[in-house]
Amino acid sequence: MSTPRRSSPPLRSPEQRRGDPAALTIAPLALVTTTALPDRPAVRRDLRAATRRPRRRRRLVVGGLVLALVAAFAIRVLLGDYTFTVPDFFRILFGEQLPVSTFILMESKLPRAVLAVLVGLALGSAGSLFQMLLRNPLASPDIVGVSLGASAAGIFALLTLGLRDGAVSAFAVVGAVVVSAVVRWVAGTTGGYRLVLTGVGVAAAMVSVVQYLLARSNTWDVQLALRWLVGSLNNVPWSTIGLLAVSLAVLLPTLAVMSRSLEVLELGDEAAAGLGVGRHRTDALLLVGVLLTAVAVAAAGPVAFVAFMSGPIARALMGGRHSLLAGALVGAVLVLLADYAAAYLVPGVVLPVGIVTGAVGGPFLLWLLARGAATGRTG
């Protein structure tokens, strides 16, 4: 018994098919497929070129910043009121004793340069991290109260408890963590601008605490506190520099591993949660940023505006893309150059590095706000 053959549907003109829903859905797909097939190699070539350009720019920017860091380090160590040649620098570095030169290099110039690099790396990476997580160019540790929390705790330990050196640094780290936890708790789960505004309020409260502690202390203690409070690389011992280096050897690789989810977190809390990255990852990254800020402040005091300036400068160099590595390198270059200017800007006077960074960072903040107001955006 033969099965009846199905008759093929009659051919219809385009006018007859115009009202058919199936034709409306299939026709565009067929059109896209047929038109994309001849150009597929060109599309792949364009996609590869589009992905290579940011990578090439990233390598060029990072390489240029590394060269700038080496140049700034050489300027800080070799030049100034007492200059060194490159052969003499390496001779002293490998243990040869030269009269006067060895003391100046190993006890003054080299410690300040190494500390400047470490502090700049910590603050630059922390500032870039805060701005990426909170999607706000103003959300640096300077603005949201972390630096001032560490400062208030350190001043309390210095003036009220009479502690020195490592104990003051420990209080500064604890103060930064406590203040950041309070800011996060008050701001709630919304984050963003509310966290920034909460941080500004807490920072104002910390300023009041510092002023009260300074007002009730004697003159000698106030001088010690002010020198530490402004942010200074003067007379920092090698032991403190070593502790900072060990801390960064733990925190920076941790940040590098955890930062793989940063691109997802930048999409927002809801989108990140939908992609399997919860709020706990944001809090963990913020804690790493707080600790980076805290150890830097504990070693050199709150060097103003370095964390704030590093992110926007690095983003401009990267063509609008965020980069923690570029931000860290920019921070190190900024602190090195600012410390060189602080040492030789005024003849016969060695200024704290925080005065120079504050003098540059204040106008930079105003320019960023004016630029955001003029263009209708915040950064």
Rank of each mutant, 00 (worst) to 15 (best):
A116M: 02
L287G: 11
S128P: 01
F305M: 11
T34I: 11
S140Q: 01
F103I: 13
E263M: 05
N136L: 07
T83H: 03
R57F: 04
L251P: 02
R91A: 11
A172T: 08
A328D: 02
N235S: 13
A157Q: 00
V43Q: 12
T240Q: 13
E263C: 00
N218F: 13
R315G: 06
G63T: 14
A36E: 05
G358I: 07
G162H: 07
L69W: 06
V202C: 03
A71N: 05
A343S: 15
I241F: 11
L287S: 12
P111D: 05
T3H: 15
G19R: 12
A187G: 07
R164M: 00
G354T: 06
L148A: 09
R17W: 14
A30N: 01
V32H: 03
L213P: 02
A42L: 15
L195Y: 03
V290A: 04
F103L: 14
V290E: 01
G64E: 06
D339M: 06
V178D: 07
R58I: 01
P10S: 14
T282E: 12
S169V: 00
R216T: 15
A316Q: 14
G175E: 12
N235F: 09
V250P: 04
L248W: 10
G188W: 05
I313S: 06
F94S: 11
G242A: 12
P38H: 12
Y340N: 09
F156Q: 00
T33K: 01
A157S: 08
A167T: 12
L110Y: 02
L60H: 13
L105A: 11
L292P: 07
R45A: 15
D269L: 05
E15G: 06
A49L: 14
A176E: 06
P10W: 10
W367K: 00
S7G: 04
R53Q: 14
L334T: 10
A284W: 11
L252H: 12
E263P: 00
P352D: 06
R315N: 04
F156L: 12
V62T: 15
A170T: 15
G319T: 11
L197S: 04
G242R: 13
H322F: 01
V202R: 00
Q131L: 00
V236N: 13
E107R: 15
L163E: 08
A215D: 10
G19Y: 06
V174M: 14
Y193A: 09
A22W: 11
L243R: 15
S261K: 12
Q211P: 03
P87T: 09
A271K: 12
P54N: 09
A30F: 12
G331W: 04
L24S: 15
T34D: 02
S2Q: 11
V32F: 15
F94A: 10
A328W: 02
S169D: 02
G63V: 09
R184A: 10
L275P: 10
A249K: 06
A343R: 15
A49T: 06
L158T: 03
D165T: 08
T3N: 11
V100Y: 13
V178W: 06
G358T: 03
A332L: 03
A139K: 10
T375W: 02
G64H: 05
G311E: 05
L158H: 09
T189E: 08
A304E: 05
E96V: 07
R227E: 12
V66C: 14
T189M: 05
L214V: 13
L337A: 13
R321G: 01
